[in-house]
Design a protein around this nucleic acid. Sequence first.
DNA 1: GCACTCCGTTGATATAAATCAACAGAATAA
DNA 2: TTATTCTGTTGATTTATATCAACGGAGTGC
Lengths: 230, 230
Amino acid sequence: MANNNGSNCHLCMQKSDVFKRLNHDELDAVNGCRVTIKYRPGEIIFKQGSPCHDFVCIVSGLAKLYIESECEKRIIIGFAKPVDYIFVPGAFTDKRHHFSAVACEETTACLVNAEVFQNILDNNNAFASAFIKKVSEQAIGMFEQLASLTHKQMPGRIADVLLSLSQKIYNANPFVTSLSRQDLADMSGMTKESAIRILKTFKDDNLIRTDSDTIELLNVPMLETISRNG
Amino acid sequence: MANNNGSNCHLCMQKSDVFKRLNHDELDAVNGCRVTIKYRPGEIIFKQGSPCHDFVCIVSGLAKLYIESECEKRIIIGFAKPVDYIFVPGAFTDKRHHFSAVACEETTACLVNAEVFQNILDNNNAFASAFIKKVSEQAIGMFEQLASLTHKQMPGRIADVLLSLSQKIYNANPFVTSLSRQDLADMSGMTKESAIRILKTFKDDNLIRTDSDTIELLNVPMLETISRNG
DNA sequence: GCACTCCGTTGATATAAATCAACAGAATAA
DNA sequence: TTATTCTGTTGATTTATATCAACGGAGTGC
């Protein structure tokens, strides 16, 4: 895994609201200590509980972020897609990862030394502001997920997952996904079997169409109604 | 509700890790635009969906923060106690409140103009860093709550609530609380009736003791075991 | 005084969802 | 090739939890 192969920070800078705030020197600092790594599907980028030394920026592919409990259950709390770094709250507190990140498909990530990142954050107000904005958006997303998981029944939760995948993750309507049924279940807080059953009722009602890894939402308004009604 | 009655910012500064980072001028700016308000139990400090013009700092009492869904259900996502401001993610995004804050008991809050607050955040790196640290801690707390609510059964969730109240909110073991059974249920994602039933089994097993508004944890290790086992 | 609402409590019943079990197909390893 | 593991799927059964209903007590307003 060589350093600085493929992309460089100046390319990413154009694509990311947050990295736009970096000046030339800061970008050089990041570029200088940056390590690019390719992950294959299923490979762990970082593991819950492990120390966090680096900030991770996803350059290509898709990573899922999930919490694992003692009881072997997982809950997917979000995704990281290009070009975005992963907000690691532990980096600012106990220097531990509080969730795991795993590549869903072939994924490239840049690792940036946490101290370098922290240093920029401490000195560049615009960057810090953009960072806080991003963290705020993520917090709001967590609120929505928490409300969905605790207040809605399974059809509403699956509707939420499908709408979120189409509108926030893939930004497409027939979308091709690398997520398994288990992943969909982990997003919606249910078992794989239950997720499959709900998807089947949606298919029977012509709300969606699935074909191997492709999912198409045929009736978005109805899915939104199901989401609202819980 | 007059301005600047009772406390002043210099007192709060000593009690809050975050406000310690403010210099004299910044503190004066905050002090100058600050409005102090007393809320009675049950009164709304701010309401989900409403525009957020001010940052809220709790000076005395206790406020509960909760998300309300369309289906009339609530989930308490945290508390604010003295001296702490409430992190309002909407202030950095869509200028709307994404959860409601309600006084649990007689509560005093200082409202600080959001622009003044934002201005300090943009210019004081140490303050911004402390802010990010606080937000990170809150995010980690949300992860734990999400895992508790989605992966544990009712006894584990109630154990989590009791331990959290004793160890994080009240910092006392027999503690006197102003929270209703409904509030405990809203913290643990279940109905009031279910919460009461679990509390009863805990009482029957001599894990806790309750006397009107007082709750005492008699067997913390066992409660922790119940929490771990879900 | 009385009516009324809110909170805490308990029991009976209904139901959403997990668990258990089985199997087919695809992918992977030996 | 065969064996083996993982994913997707379906059905039968169990169970955790919500819902419904009822009641006593405390507080509040009239």
